[in-house]
């Protein structure tokens, strides 16, 4: 997405130079300003679904997701404010309440981006009631497991499979609260004809929804995999 021109903007009061077409998130990152995000991952297309990276832009009453909003000249961005913190905290609370997340028995306990965000934002309890509907756990693959009860629908797995592995074995079925990750056309993973068993989906899963059986999750997870492969390809 790099354009030809160069633009100047201010992020949290810091003067930042960025390429035309670059996103706020990417410009902020280079300036050393961290914006929380869950669905965003370096090396994958931006999705704009988790809403954690929302930022304020001076002159607009709206909030903008930093991962999809392109920079423009003279833009003044605020990445942290009481309002943004309150809203991000709410997003984390809602994600924790959407599925029967039980950190104590989750394979990703201690290696979970959602758990880390809850700690960072001081989400020490949930003000909304939790959902306890159980969803499909696919154990049919010889070593990959998909547990929809832990999925936060960030679609990193879909995107890494589609954009990096080039297979698009994963997708979403249904919509809204009933959305679920599926393999092929809602087949059992073990009988999938398109899955190459490359594990990239497990590597990028921010929570414990896709994991490798009998492998410590700290060894499976690798947030840099997509970006790493992209850089290799460009050589």
């Amino acid at each position: 997405m790099s354009g030809t021109g160069v633009v100047k903007l201010k992020i949290d009061g810091v003067e930042v130079t960025a390429n035309e077409g670059e996103t706020i998130l990417s410009a902020a990152k280079r300036a050393g300003i961290k914006i929380p995000a869950l669905c965003y991952l370096d090396g994958l297309s931006s999705y704009g679904g988790c809403r954690l990276c929302i930022v304020e832009v001076k002159g607009s009453p709206r909030l903008f997701p930093a991962c999809t909003t392109p920079v423009s000249n003279g833009m003044e961005v605020t990445t942290d404010s009481p309002k943004l913190r309150k809203y991000r905290k709410m997003t984390i609370e809602l994600l924790l309440s959407e599925k029967p997340h039980i950190c104590a028995i989750c394979i990703a306990n201690g290696n979970c981006e959602l758990q880390d965000l809850a700690r960072e934002f001081g989400v020490d309890h949930l003000r909304v009631e939790r959902e306890w509907k159980s969803q499909k756990i696919d154990l049919s693959h010889s070593f990959l497991v998909l547990d929809n009860n832990r999925c936060i629908l960030c679609t990193r797995c879909l995107r890494v499979c589609d954009e990096i592995e080039g297979v698009h074995a994963l997708d979403i079925k249904m919509r809204g609260k009933d959305s679920q990750i599926i393999i092929d056309i809602d087949d059992d993973w073990g009988s999938s004809i398109s899955c190459t068993s490359c594990r990239k989906c497990a590597r990028v899963c921010p929570v414990g929804a896709i994991y490798v059986r009998d492998e410590p999750i700290s060894r499976t997870k690798n947030k840099d995999i997509a970006q790493f492969i992209l850089l290799r390809r460009r050589r």
């Binding site: 809403r51 709410m90 009631e129 809204g176 959305s179």
Partner: peptide, 25 residues
Amino acid sequence: CVDESCGKCVPCRVGLLKMRNILER
């Protein structure tokens, strides 16, 4: 709107559902 939410973003997918549930309560 809960039924018709596409499910992509958290506020609409989960937030609306919780609001509906509170009304039911």
